[in-house]
Design a binder for these strands. Structure first.
Lengths: 238, 238
DNA sequence: CGTGTACTTGAGTGGGCTCAAGCAGGGTGG
DNA sequence: CCACCCTGCTTGAGCCCACTCAAGTACACG
């Protein structure tokens, strides 16, 4: 990790953490966490910052407190392919628990807040806490479900690009509102397997039809306001 | 599960199992397995038989002893999409451990042999055996790795179909020989997101170029003999 | 206010789809 | 053992969606 790419806000106090119920530590007693005695730091990343690199030995795992991270792989030609998106509650570096080295590069899309736990400490804690293992297994399970859905709904060449984009947009909704995270064209393309030009044209269509409305200024607040009902219609088009 | 679709060979004797070192029970002591006392049956499926259906409540998990199984999802139009292929050593029904219901339909591609463990027994055993949890986590990890590779190498629209087919064929090698499992055109298409017609044309090219040679008679023995070096070249073409 | 990155727009091409037939081969039943 | 049938494969013609290449534009950030 490049020191210039993140800021450290100092040690976390897990006892006062308002997110603990959403983490894998949810069912672990406070006394056990105290006994853990790991140096857990709170980090902040800027958009575009790298949390870890493909192929590097994993030094730590990080709990997503806020923001969105893309997990990417690069092909021989250097083109990126996004295989997953991490959001609040997910675990960055999960796969490295069982494989030593990272298998993707993790890049912040928005501003990102995490809690970093050194791998050594986490590994030893893991051996002592069966409930923690179950929670981790659930995280793996969630990740599998997400990738399965990507495969079955998002990346089929045989489904029109417009339909697939609608499905992706519905997955990028913020809560239950009509607000939708607006990724860069390149990122959207790296998910759907389309070129930026094609996406630009399709999105222009949707804007012209009134289905999408550009909103939010600045790279930290890019978003669409979307007509969810209309997008749902489009997403069901075979 | 439809009773007509599989044959039961009777109870397994785990103590004499020649595959135990490859299963998730590898590090579990024999005395623990004896104490387990689960009714574990050995099953055989014909090609095309269904191991379990999407959406059904999981009754059991099954350990793959032999053969290949496709995990498929069906879209609204009824078209299948293959999200994973299970081989010897994999666990069928893995995801249902954490979600009650199955999330794919599992269909035998070749003749398939499994050991079936009722879900109830397995769940209770799981709570008592931390090492078993770690082994299961490894299975989840393997599944994630496979799907990640599918996403990054196999399904990109921007990569020519010929290249992607070569990559898939290399993944379907039998051991280290030049022999390659020959899936149906429809199945290959359900993996790569291509139509059978397109695949037929590309495969004809490869046969004409001497890269592939059709071999094996009967649905149980379909295979290609492939020129691995040539396929590797083609698979690297961006 | 300058600079760079990301987005936009156009014209032209081509890869893979669609639709429509014909073919093979192996499994089934007589 | 043979004939049938049915599924899966093959081949062709034509089209269309999305890619490529090439400019030009807007916007965000310093």
């Amino acid at each position: 990790m490049n020191p210039r790419e993140y800021k450290c806000l100092g040690r976390s106090d897990c006892r006062r953490c308002e997110h603990r119920s959403q983490t894998i530590f949810a069912e672990i007693g406070l006394e056990d966490i105290d006994a853990f005695q790991a140096p857990i730091d709170r980090l902040v990343y800027e958009p575009g910052a790298v949390l870890y690199h493909d192929g590097h030995v994993a030094q730590a795992i990080q709990f997503m407190r806020y923001g969105a991270v893309k997990l990417v792989r690069f092909d021989a030609a250097g083109h990126q392919r996004i295989v997953r998106i991490l959001k609040q509650g997910d675990v960055a570096g999960l796969e490295a628990i069982l494989s030593e080295k990272h298998q993707h590069t993790a890049i912040a899309i928005t501003e990102v807040h995490t809690c970093r736990v050194p791998m050594q400490h986490f590994q030893s804690f893991l051996l002592q806490a069966p409930r923690l293992q179950m929670r981790l297994m659930e995280k793996f399970h969630q990740a599998l479900q997400e990738v399965d859905q990507w495969l079955s709904e998002l990346v089929s060449n045989t489904i029109p690009a417009r339909t697939r984009l609608a499905r992706l947009l519905l997955r990028l909704r913020i809560g239950n509102s009509g607000d939708i995270h607006r990724l860069s064209l390149a990122d959207t393309g790296a998910i759907l397997g389309l070129t930026p030009e094609t996406l630009c044209r399709i999105q222009r269509e949707l804007v012209n039809e009134g289905v999408l409305l550009k909103a939010g200024k600045g790279r930290a607040h890019r978003r669409y306001q979307g007509d969810i009902a209309a997008l749902s219609m489009i997403s069901q088009n075979p």
